[in-house]
Write a protein that binds this DNA or RNA. Structure first.
Lengths: 192, 192
DNA sequence: AAATAGACTTAAACTAGTTTAAGAAAGGGG
DNA sequence: CCCCTTTCTTAAACTAGTTTAAGTCTATTT
């Protein structure tokens, strides 16, 4: 199992002792995903806190008209989950799907709680992870409210340049909240 | 000092022992705010995690054209802060201001860290608080991407009915990402 | 090499939401 | 009680972004 990236990631918040990484190893499951493979479907509870080792996943909803809307992407060293459903056990409104062939590490609710019980270091780390996610989401809300589609696209290019060359156009447009057609227009204007 | 609402709030996550509430009391400062009084201004570091006892605050940015955009509101028993600036000490991009005369309880970074050191219960509680904030923000992103202005307004009415009657129209419009004029139009159509 | 399908672009007609401007209502302070 | 400021509404002209529909460009399968 390729656990090292996760150990490095968590250790970057607070270094882990060997007993802690050992305990972690017991609780984590590796999973290899094909392109377009789902790890969460609407109507089902979200049973995993998922860490991306390699590849890229997206979280999206399908609205009443059947249109997909990408909420967020998670690439290397990022987390993806429906926290609400994960903790409550209630059916999720979201889908999570691999955009590229990906390798992920997953933790189930009771295993995560066991980690929390084993060492409060994990509480501290996941507190900071949640806070960082808040900051990212807050910025996103800010951009959605205050920027035009073109400005949002340019901000996306700067912030997620590595992703912008890996993701199909449709997914970027959906993330920006515009149509692929309009994204095309913007690209032509900005000449990129 | 009116500490009880905060004790109740934190205790609803994990009940606090008397030593913990005592420790909390030492670290928390009460502050009474007039309408339109700022507790955070752009360019200054955010020095407080702020808990709202009564009244209502808003967090907003002013964009390049000088237009205000409300990111979020916090009323009774809610938290408001620029987490990023709070932890990093860097200048914030946000303003936080009282919309109504308000009473708040504030904690400064080192006092919060002292709480974390005193009892890891506080880590656990603030982890959940951050996670809940993530859920709320994620829903907001979802609404901004997938709903029309009218649908967003109706969703806002349902979710924040208590606030919708307390907040001036301008602030609601800014929160929804539309002009007050257009909000007026929507209101006329929905006959509410 | 042809066939099929997925990803991206173009353009014209359209619509949701903005802008500008003006007037009506509604506080709140002296 | 009236003035003054702030809040809300209406309407017309405008623009950013959508819709629809067709066409190009790859890549993959046969």
């Amino acid at each position: 199992m390729t656990l090292q990236p996760l150990i490095d990631h968590l250790g970057s918040y607070i270094p882990l002792k060997q007993t802690e990484t050992q305990f972690l190893e017991e609780k984590v499951t590796e999973r290899r995903l094909k392109r377009k493979q789902h790890i969460l479907q609407e109507g089902f509870p979200c049973r995993h806190y998922t860490f991306v080792v390699s590849g890229c996943l997206r979280m999206f909803v399908i609205d009443v008209q059947g249109i997909e809307h990408n909420i967020l992407f998670a690439a290397e060293n990022d987390w993806i989950t429906d926290i609400s459903s994960f903790h409550s056990g209630k059916p999720s409104r979201f889908f999570i799907e691999a955009v590229e062939p990906s390798v992920v590490l997953q933790i189930e609710p009771y295993d995560l709680y066991a980690l929390y019980t084993h060492s409060y270091k994990f509480d501290k780390i996941f507190k900071v992870i949640a806070e960082n996610k808040c900051v990212a989401l807050q910025n996103r809300v800010l951009q959605m409210i205050s920027l035009t589609a073109k400005e949002r696209y340019l901000a996306f290019l700067e912030e997620y340049h590595h992703l912008s060359v890996r993701l199909p156009n449709v997914h970027i447009a959906s993330y920006l909240g515009i149509t692929p057609e309009f994204l095309s227009k913007i690209r032509k204007e900005t000449a990129y």
